[in-house]
Each structure stands twice: as C-alpha cells, then as structure tokens.
Design a protein around this nucleic acid. Structure first.
Length: 684
DNA sequence: GATCCTCGAGTTCT
DNA sequence: CTCGAGGATC
C-alpha cells in the first residue's frame, strides 16, 4: 500500500517510522511487545513500499535500514565482529519462487540445493568457542552490538561448555536460537503464578526474559534450550563447504542442532518442506514461526552477498500469523448447563492462522480484569498450537475514547433469575436451575450427547426447536416424541424424523455408567459415573446411598458425595428417572470381569495423537477390557503412553518423564496377541 | 498443610 | 487443550 501524493507519503512514512521505533523499543528493550509480529511486519512492509516508490524519503536512520533492536544496558556490551543479520521474509509461495529465481539468474545455475530448517521462535545468540571451550555468549542485540550473557548461557543444559570430538577451529563462533519448549513454558508459568508473579505470554518472551536475568541462578531454573543454526567468525581451522555439512559438523562437536534440517532442491523442494513441517507444526514441542531456506553451498552464498540488512542467499518463509489484532465489539454472556455464566468476546471477524474468528471465551470476570479489557478496545487474538482462539491482551495505545468496561449482569440474560457469585468462586451462576431455558436445553443436549445416551441427530438446533415449541421439558419427554410432532417442525422431512425416532429407540438400550453420566449430576462426569456403577452395581443402590457410603467410592470425596446425594434427594429428579425407566430405558447388570483375564489391571494408560485403525473411544474400550485405566494426562504414575500420529505435548511429556511409549503398530500387535504378560512388565 | 494427580466442564469452526 | 478444583497422598 503506497501513496501517490508525495506529501501524504512523507507524512505516512514519518508516522510509520515512529511507530516502528516504538514497537522495536517495546520488543527488544522492554521485552513486552505491544502488537503481534504480523502487525509489525505489516507496518514494516508498508514503510518499505513507500520508500521504494519515493526514494527521496529513504533516510539512513529508517528502521528499514537497520536490523532493529537496542541493547539493554544491564549487561556488558559485546561487539559482534561479524554482524548478526536478520533475514528477509517471504509470506507466500510466489515470494519463494522469486527468491529462487533471483539466485538462479545471478549464479546462472539451475536446480539449486538449499538447506531448509525450522525458524525457531526464540532469541538469537552468538556462542564463542576458543580452543573448544565456551568463552562468551552474547545476544544478538541490534545485530552489531549485543549483551554479554555468558553466565546465564552456561546454565543451559544442552549447551556444552567444551566441544567434544576434535578438529574444531581455534576460534569458532556458533550461532543459534535460544528457545523454550511448550512444556517448559507451562512449567515455568505454573511456578510464576505460585510465586504471585506474572506468567509469560509466549515462549519467546520467556526465553528472552530468562536469558537476561541478572542472577544466573534464576536463569538456571528456567527451562531454556537451544538449537544451533550456523557459524559466525571462524579462525584457524577449515569447516565443510556447505551449510548442511556445517550443521552435521556442529552436531558432531556436541552442539544441539535441529533434527528437522533437510537438504531440498529448488523452490519446489522448499515449498514441499514448508508444507510438511507446517502440517506438523502443532505437534512440535516448541513454537516455530516459519521455515528458513539457505543456499547450501558456501561458495554460492559468497557470490550472492548481502543487501543492507540481510543476506541475499537466505529467506525466512513465515507461517500465516497465529496472532492478529481486531476490535472487541462487545462482551456477551453465555449460560451453561451448570448455570455458569461465561463472558464471551464478540470480535470483529478476523482471519487468524487461516480461520475466521468472531468470538472467543473470556472465561470469567477475573480474566477480563486481569487483561484489562474494555469494550471497544483493540485486542490481540491468538490461535496457539491448538485450535481454540484466545484473547491474549489489549493494545492500550489504540484505546478509543468511548471504550467502556464490561459490567457483569445481575440477572440471568436467559431467564431473568438472580445471578450470584459464591464466596471463593471465580464464577457467577444463574440461580434459575432447570427453570432457566438455557440450562434446560443444555441438560437435554448433554443427555443426548455421544458420550452419554448417544442419540444421533438430536443436536443443538433440534433441541432448541423442541424446547421452544413446548414438545419437551424434561429428558423423559424425549421418549414420548411422536412422528407427527416431529413432522410439524421446520426442516424436518419424513426421512429425518424416522431416523431420529430410530436413534431414540436405540438409545433405550444403554449402560449404567452412560445413564448416570447422562443425568448430568454436578461434578459427576464419565469417570465418576463409571466408578459409581462399578462400586454400587445398581441405580437403586446409588440413589439410596448415604453420604458416608458414597465417599467409599474411589475419587468421591465430600463435595462430590454431596452433589450426588442432593441430586437424588430432589423429587423432580427421581420422577424423571422413573419416567425414563418406564419408557424402556434399560441396561445390563454390571458384572466384574475376572482379574486373571486382565493383563493391564491397575495400569494407567494414556492415549495421544490420532490412531488410524480405530477411534479413540474404541481404543479406550479395548484397553479397559484388559483392565487398564485410561487417563487423559501423563504423569509419572502413567504406566504406558500409546501415541498415534501427530502426537503432541503428551508424547513430549512422556519422553521427558521416561514413560514407555508404544506406537500404533506395536499397540495393535499386542492387542492381537491378547497382550502377553512379558510386554506388560516391560519398562523401556 | 502442601503437593501431585485426575476429573469435570467449557472451548471454536468447518 | 486448558483451567480450576476435588481427592488422594505424603
């Protein structure tokens, strides 16, 4: 976006420079960026475009002419003999083709080989080894001058104090990226919160903040790690003649190098790598913001040379932004099955990581206050590793004059009942109970859901229609629905009505745990329902159990026992249950499988990733049939992890804790074989 | 009383 | 997946 009117262009350029300076300062010096990287890039490119169209506006001190960043004063300055440059960016395929074409034209060589590697979202450092010993570590700073962080860097466990092997040059400057894994950040943030300190918004901030600690003991507690990606100054010793071979060499000297680095051919090879790694991005245990392509042969790199701020032989191909800015148009309140009121941000629709986001949960009142959100603010929205959008924070400098705070309603927006916030609880609750249409609808949906009674076709839309049309008020009414009632509904032809009735019919045959779960007793989910069924055997026994008797069940303490007791004491609930049973809802009597048939008895197993041969539920059932307890998170008590494809943080955690991991093929083999006892006892 | 582990509940969009 | 909180364990 450039301007044709020179005066307007000059004004905009000045504006942009000031903004970029400001953001650079926030990012590098305060270590607290105000805007997402994508926004910074956009401003940067806008300025570049203006300067390109109006060369007279180009000044030597323009942010486009510098690498960006000022060294913080707390540490001794280090002058980089060879500047640590930044990389040109590419945001789409075309720019990668252009990059490759420029090199082919200049070198007059076809089929160029590149090294492709992930671009870590961390902090660039320079590591100086003299006679194979680490003598200095420095941050990149502005590229020319950085900070001496030797003491802190020495606390990074994967960074060798002395190189192993032999043949290293007398002086070797290694360059790398210090970063933090997701697990490491989560761990650190947990400790931050425990100490009443602010958690870090992302791994890069955490890594940067940790490396710049004044006290190395603090750095030492931070889970910093490192990948080396190249060399700087080298004296007294030859190095291989290609980038990829240098990485191999660094690895042999004991330096950590990304296992993802590959040689690829041409722009097509680069793009294939980009897509492949992009597909696995969410499953990687650390954040990457793109992929870097470097011309592999050093001789060719030398011919290409540099432009003012970046080498011409390398480019960073960025992934679509995972963070964007948008306007917080409003905050509405959602009423859940349990009566909890959840504030939801209504956002000006914005594409984040390729998906349009228009709302995001704000969880609770405290969260809104902690983030300091006002309606009308510009906020930063993120889709972190997973899928769920999240409001990360506010850009206070863009707050409009009419921005106003959100006031939690005193009455339920659905039913008008009073809203209360119990002592010590984070949440506000609607006191309307099943009188509240929102809670009633959610209760019915929960009853019909896949993991409960599994009535296929009875989803959100239909439940709304049925409740609003007065066809059902309690879950028991589901079994009284007739074909002619359904036929009266809009968008409900004969065929779908028949399908729904058949699904309802099928759901009559169920199991006691499913039925208990479906009732929606507060604090009783799938696992507790199963434990109750196993312990008591019959609905009768559970509904008449005393508080003391209930607490005999594993995982049931005073709070859950109270919930259950209260539920069954309610006449209305008993009536609905009787009606359900009268309508033909039934389940087989519980029988306990003989222990000897259960090779996995007492073992806690965790499933992660996607299994190709069966659904998660089936895998769970088969494991449970062998006596295993299928848990959802990995801890040191976990006996076994079964990892499908695209396994994420749970696999990383398992490896970290040394929990044995099975891949899908091995898992299937053992299932086939009835899980021979030898394997169950194996510990590696 | 503190700490670890697990469960429940809510989470967006296609 | 992530949070908060209940339960178990030391």
């Amino acid at each position: 976006m450039s301007l044709s009117d020179p005066q307007a262009a000059a004004q905009r350029a000045a504006e942009l420079r000031q903004l970029l300076e400001h953001h650079n300062y926030c990012y590098y010096v305060l270590d607290a960026p105000e805007v997402p990287d994508a926004e910074f890039d956009r401003l940067f490119r806008e300025l570049q475009a203006i300067e390109r169209d109006h060369p007279q506006l180009l000044t030597a001190d323009s942010p486009t002419q510098r690498v960006g960043g000022e060294a913080q004063r707390a540490f001794a300055e280090v002058l980089h003999e060879l500047p640590m440059l930044s990389l040109a960016n590419a945001f789409d395929d075309q720019e990668v083709y252009d990059f490759d074409r420029r090199i082919r034209e200049r070198l007059a060589v076809e089929g160029l080989i590149y090294t492709a590697e992930p671009k870590m979202d961390g902090l660039a450092v320079s590591l100086l080894y003299r006679e194979g010993r680490l003598v200095r570590a420095a941050t990149r700073g502005d590229g020319t001058t950085g900070e001496d962080v030797t003491h802190n860097a020495r606390t990074i466990t994967v960074l060798p104090a002395a190189l192993s092997g032999s043949g290293w040059p007398a002086l070797l400057e290694v360059r790398g990226e210090v970063y933090m894994t997701h697990a490491g950040l989560a761990d650190l943030n947990r400790r931050q919160l425990q100490r009443g300190e602010r958690p870090f918004a992302n791994p890069r901030n955490a890594a940067a903040g940790s490396l710049r600690q004044k006290d190395p003991r603090v750095s030492a507690e931070r889970p910093l790690t490192l990948f080396c990606y190249g060399v700087g100054k080298v004296e007294g010793g030859p190095l291989p003649d290609s980038h990829f071979a240098i990485l191999e060499q660094l690895r042999q000297w004991g330096l950590p190098v990304s296992p993802e680095a590959r040689r690829v051919e041409g722009a097509e090879g680069c793009l294939a790598y980009y897509r492949e790694l992009g597909g696995r991005r969410a499953a990687l245990p650390y954040d990457i913001d793109g992929v870097v392509y470097k011309l592999d042969l050093l001789a060719q790199q030398e011919v290409m040379g540099f432009v003012s701020r970046a080498p011409r032989w390398a480019v960073a191909h960025k992934f679509p932004a995972q963070e964007e800015m948008t306007r917080l148009n409003d905050i509405i309140v959602n009423v859940s099955r349990t009566g909890r009121l959840t504030p939801v941000a209504r956002l000006e629709p914005i594409s984040v990581g390729g998906v349009t986001v228009s709302q995001a949960s704000l969880h609770n009142q405290d969260e809104i206050e902690r983030k300091g959100l006002l309606i009308g603010d510009t906020v930063i929205v993120r889709r972190a590793g997973d899928v769920i959008p999240e409001v990360v924070g506010v850009v206070e400098s863009l707050r409009p004059a009419d921005a106003h705070p959100f006031v939690f309603p005193s009455h339920c927006p659905e039913c008008g009942s009073e809203v209360v916030r119990l002592d010590g609880e984070v949440d506000y609750r609607c006191t309307g109970g099943l009188f509240c249409p929102a809670q009633r609808k959610e209760a019915i949906r929960h009853f019909a859901s896949r993991r409960a009674m599994d009535i296929e076709g009875l989803g959100e839309k239909l439940v709304d229609q049925l409740v609003e049309g007065g066809h059902i008020t309690t879950v028991a009414d589901i079994y009284r629905l007739a074909a002619d009632q359904l036929a009266a509904l809009p968008r409900m032809a004969e065929k779908s009505a028949a399908n729904l009735l058949a699904a309802i019919e099928r759901s009559r045959d169920t199991t006691l745990p499913r039925f208990l779960h479906a009732l929606g007793i507060p604090n009783v989910g799938e696992a507790t329902a199963q434990a109750l069924a196993r312990h008591f055997g019959t609905l009768e026994a559970i509904s008449n159990a005393s508080l003391e008797a209930l607490q005999q069940v594993p995982d049931v303490g005073p709070v859950v026992a109270e919930s259950i007791h209260l539920f069954f004491a309610e006449a209305h609930n008993r009536q609905v249950m009787e009606q359900l049973i009268a309508a033909g809802v039934q389940w087989p009597a519980i029988e306990v499988a003989p222990r000897e048939a259960q090779p996995l008895a007492g073992m806690s197993v965790v499933l992660t990733g996607t299994l190709s041969s069966m659904g998660r539920d089936e895998a769970k059932e088969r494991l449970e049939a062998l006596g295993a307890k299928v848990a959802s998170s990995v801890s040191k008590k976990t006996a076994l992890v079964i990892a499908g494809s695209d396994a994420g943080s749970k696999l990383a955690k398992a490896e970290q804790l040394g929990v044995p991991v099975l891949d899908e093929a091995t898992f299937l083999e053992r299932l086939e074989a009835g899980w021979p006892a030898v394997e169950a006892a194996e510990s590696e």
